[in-house]
Amino acid sequence: MIREIIGMAFILIGITFDFFGVLGLVRLPDVYNRLQAATKCVTFGSAGILLGVFIKQGFNNFGFKALIGIAFIFLTSPVSAHAIARASHRSGIPLTKETVIDQYQEDNELKESGKKDV
């Protein structure tokens, strides 16, 4: 009985943070900020849902599949976020106009000019 209540609480927390993450995907101004909000909140939210399912089910077939799902999304979602961020910066998608500093762009321009001198 107490296990059911704890599992349901984890599922509710997970769905709340899922919702915040998707709201960030709609509201924030450019692709890097959207990637930040969405990756953090949706990963945490889905992991919360899967942890609640594991607590409700206990140590059987279904519960172990949920645990493997948690490990899987924690390993893969930062990697795909990193790949998308690097690709969009290299393909020249601009940052939003509120940006204060871009040291990556400065270093790339430094490297390009260095190559031209040699």
Partner: peptide
């Protein structure tokens, strides 16, 4: 992230360091 998203004024100051 929840604080930033729910605020009507979007208090962000992004940059790459």
């Amino acid at each position: 992230v929840a604080y930033i998203v729910l605020n009507p004024n979007l208090p962000i100051k992004p940059g790459i360091v």
